[in-house]
Design a protein around this nucleic acid. Sequence first.
DNA 1: TATTGTTATACTCTATAACTATA
DNA 2: TATAGTTATAGAGTATAACAATA
Lengths: 151, 151
Amino acid sequence: MGTLVHMARSRTSCTDPLTLEVVELIGSVVNRYHDEYERAASRHALTGAQARVLGLLSLEPMPMRRIAQKLKCEPSNVTGIVDRLESRGLVERRPDPADRRVKLAAPTEEGARTARELRDGLDDFAREPLGALSRDERVSLRDLLRLMLEQ
Amino acid sequence: MGTLVHMARSRTSCTDPLTLEVVELIGSVVNRYHDEYERAASRHALTGAQARVLGLLSLEPMPMRRIAQKLKCEPSNVTGIVDRLESRGLVERRPDPADRRVKLAAPTEEGARTARELRDGLDDFAREPLGALSRDERVSLRDLLRLMLEQ
DNA sequence: TATTGTTATACTCTATAACTATA
DNA sequence: TATAGTTATAGAGTATAACAATA
């Protein structure tokens, strides 16, 4: 039975050059996106994880636990990441009035500014590889990506 | 002057909801792709970096230095990654007849098999989010991605 | 002298397990 | 007793600097 499943798999993918090429192209976009993200982060002397947390908190302050869920990592890791952001004055921990166990992480004013600049940095990506597409082509791309993601 | 540059930036991106949405959608695809990649790797008890190196070598054996270039990291890091792959019998270091300083990293037979299975694992990505697209839509997506990447 | 790969070091991210203070 | 956050620990990836072998 396991063999049948595997055969079905192989038939679906390896025999379909089109799908394979699309997967490969997406891989290239992924690498490109990641590089831009890391570059933007390191311009502010931040690691990728720190930049991601700061970006999250700039949208909405949240408990440590929830950051871990968003990052898909263990809560214990968030402690260190927020520690480093806090020691640089970009984030602060506030008590939650409703539950004294909870600590709400929130960006400081400088943190919010940094997050904004980081977001601008990501626009390099919008300009560079995305700049090659006309408005109509962007609409097509948007619709295709929506289709892919909305299941 | 710095201000002008920044204003131009902001105008390009923040005022263009379409481009912004596309960047955000691509961000989602990037996360999805990454998750699938890590999942496929950890199914073989490999880290992302180890899986990437194994995938590289399965296409073509290469010197340590070149792996570092491909990974965009320092050569000193590659030593450890290949060490771990080698200690698991997935990769071996061969001398380069042409230059005795060089060590060529190459997958073992088991390493090649693992790389193949890893590649199949990535097809989950092809089936899941990409499965939502018809053949014509995949062609459109392919053409748009090609356009983006070929500059 | 320059280059290849390695070692040593330090930092960050990661998971696991045990702890504390609340609930 | 369950939950939120932390600490301790160990493994992995990363950059930097210094080193041996070879070119």
